[in-house]
């Protein structure tokens, strides 16, 4: 009887210690804050939240950041002029989640088209 009780307690303890699927940190709050404010301060807070999720990804069961985090992180870094770092993040999203490759390439094309259009307009 004691053995069974011990096993039950151990199982309950183990299940309560189970890792969550992904580490999210302050993702939701930072996304909400930036959607609401759309300013530099909220953008910096969002980038810090992404960096935290990427750096602590091993805390999650899958050991990788949740879907979309590398991608949105990369997108913001590019917007802030940190192209190389941003492109690296987009690459990581495509490697981790191959289904993202198509729309990320679409996004990069749209962004480069916009830059080209801007150049043409300023000539």
């Amino acid at each position: 009887m004691r053995k069974i009780t011990g096993i039950l307690i151990l199982t309950a303890l183990m299940s309560s210690c189970a890792k969550p699927m992904y580490y999210w940190g302050k993702y939701d709050d930072a996304v909400y804050s930036h959607q609401k404010n759309l300013d530099d301060r909220s953008a910096k807070r969002l980038i810090a939240a992404y960096a935290d999720v990427v750096n602590n990804a091993k805390k999650g069961q899958r050991g990788v950041p949740p879907p979309g985090v590398y991608a949105d992180y990369g997108f913001f870094l590019i917007q802030q002029g940190r192209e190389k770092q941003g492109e690296r993040m987009l690459e990581l999203e495509m490697q981790t989640y191959p289904e993202s490759a198509f729309f990320i390439q679409q996004l990069l094309k749209m962004m480069s088209d916009r830059v080209e259009d801007g150049k043409k307009a300023s000539r």
Partner: peptide, 25 residues
């Protein structure tokens, strides 16, 4: 709600198109 919908779906095992890139496109 737009800030909180991706997490529960990702935790169920789905790929959710990232919200800011989706909004941009």
């Amino acid at each position: 709600f737009y800030a909180t919908m991706h997490r529960p779906l990702a935790n169920k095992g789905y790929y959710t198109i990232p919200p800011f890139i989706a909004a941009e496109i």
